[in-house]
Design a protein around this nucleic acid. Structure first.
Length: 444
RNA sequence: GGAGAGAUGGCCGAGUGGUCGAAGGCGCCUGACUCGAAAUCAGGUGUGGGGGUGACUCCACCUAGGGUUCGAAUCCCUAUCUCUCCGCCA
């Protein structure tokens, strides 16, 4: 049983040099610019590192000059302190006044260079894992395995919005009245079904998969959004609360990964596995025509998220286990799905490797994403400064972070309605879920 | 929302302009003693960034960001967070 020992887990909470944080390893970029450019190119990122290298060199030159002057100032200031009669130190004080001014000028310039460097580095996506299939588009994703047989219907299966409306459990019109497009009102057994799924998933992951349940804030600050990679590049996808610096979370990944921002964890405590239910809020900018009907693409939806902090050596074994944990939900619910290995071109900004779970939706005669499980390697750990010490004497190293949906709840409702619909318009409730539905066997 | 107090290393806690990266204690590591352990004694014990093949060396960091000064943990300003009291509230 994994358990949280706050005092043991929180090995230390250092003041971190947040402004110097880098997303990709600066040393790696400095020493292997061609390799980095080539790998980024596989994800469609045409990047020229020459500007970066020029800035990097300028930074080091400025730093050296500034530090030499600081060493001088420290030395002379100490001499001044030893002189009893300050009138005898006037010339040196004047000299140091000038040195200080030069230092100030150098540091101002250095700050500008570091800001430019920071802005550049913050917007460079992660390097794809060497294991990720190289591809040019979504079409090059690789289906790794398929589970379950899409059932043959003796009638034309309906899309979930028709089923839900007919049963009186999904009300899209009133959702739109209350808030707008892409909002839905759940009613009666529909609301119960959503809640049952949340509890079912959390119980499974905490009870059988050894995750610790978390219930984080649903809005976070800018630092947290930057730590996981949503900012600075994707601000237009986020809901921001006017007059504050809070953002509504687009996924529990953000608050849960940032739980350990700025911390040094104990190697013995790894891996840490957290499960969290949260609503998720997304602007869905740029998807105007897509999935306008039904629950597939909402501004607000529920999700149970799995997050792991692991030793780099265990990273990919833990990713496979994470995928298996998410798959288990669909297996218990008896919903056919397939696992897709995303190609380099389809990877998200922060991800190094991603498996998507796609459920079969008979109402749409296609597989649709219901979970996305990724390893970020040390990308988020660098941004958020999350490290661990192998043992008490070891140097801190960056952890690897992983996360995956386990699962998107609204889309699971979609999958249940469409896969378990009956000819008479009712929907059978999967057996595993019935205890969570007060024993109800079917809706309608 | 109003009034006040505070934020120092893994933890506790000193420090109000110079030799302070920071006393002391606790914890931890190494060594001595021991059959072993405890106790005791001695030494050590932060992070990041430059430079050097290396021994090593320099710089920065006392919540964060500015300022004053030859010199700032220490003085000034701002922000954040914590605590106390009042008001309000699930």
């Amino acid at each position: 049983m994994t358990c949280i020992r706050p005092n043991a887990t929180k090995y230390s909470f250092p003041q971190q040099n947040v402004k110097a944080f880098s997303m990709l390893d600066v040393k790696y970029l400095r020493e292997n610019p061609e390799a980095a450019e080539a790998r980024l190119k596989t994800r469609g990122e045409a990047l020229n590192l020459s500007g970066f290298r020029a800035l990097d060199e300028k930074r080091r030159a400025l730093l050296q000059t500034s530090e030499e002057l600081k060493a001088l100032r420290n030395k002379v200031s100490e001499e001044i302190s030893r002189i009893k009669e300050k009138s005898q130190a006037q010339d040196r004080i004047a000299e140091m006044r000038e040195v200080s001014q030069r230092i100030k000028a150098l540091d101002d310039e250095l700050k500008e260079v570091e800001e430019a460097l920071g802005i550049f580095l913050m917007t460079v996506p992660n390097l794809p894992s060497a294991a990720a299939p190289v591809g040019a588009s979504e079409a090059d994703n690789v289906v790794v395995r398929t589970w379950g047989e899409p059932q043959a219907f003796s009638f034309a299966p309906k899309p979930h919005w028709e089923i839900g409306e007919a049963l009186g459990i999904l009300d899209f019109e009133r959702g739109a009245k209350l808030a707008g497009a892409r909002f839905t009102l759940y009613r009666g057994a529909g609301a119960r079904l959503e809640r049952a799924l949340i509890n079912f998933m959390l119980d499974l992951h905490t009870g059988r998969h050894n995750y610790v349940e978390m219930l984080p804030p649903f809005m976070v600050n800018r630092e947290s959004m930057t730590g996981t990679g949503q900012l600075p590049k994707f601000e237009e996808d986020l809901f921001h609360l006017d007059g504050t610096d809070y953002f509504l979370i687009p996924t529990a990944e953000v608050p849960v990964t940032n739980i350990h921002r700025g911390e040094i964890l104990r190697g013995a405590d790894l891996p840490l596995r957290y499960a969290a239910y949260t609503p998720c809020f997304r602007k869905e900018a740029g998807s105007y025509g897509k999935d306008t009907r039904g629950l597939i693409r909402q501004h607000q939806f529920n999700k149970v998220e799995l997050v792991k902090f692991v030793c780099p050596a265990d990273s990919y074994r833990e990713l496979e286990a994470l995928v298996a944990d998410a798959e288990r939900v669909l297996q218990l619910l008896e919903i056919p799905y397939r696992v897709v290995d995303l190609c380099t071109a389809d990877l998200g900004f922060s991800a190094a490797r991603t498996y998507d779970l796609e459920v079969w939706l008979p109402g749409q005669n296609s597989y649709r994403e219901i979970s996305s499980c990724s390893s970020f390697e040390d990308f988020q750990a660098r941004r958020a400064s999350i490290r661990f010490r192998e043992d008490d004497k070891a140097k801190p190293e960056f952890v690897h972070t992983l996360n995956g949906s386990g699962l998107a709840v609204g889309r699971t409702v979609v999958a249940i309605l469409e896969n378990f619909q009956q000819a008479d318009g009712t929907v059978t409730i999967p057996e595993a879920l019935r205890p969570y539905m007060g024993g109800m066997e079917s809706i309608g």
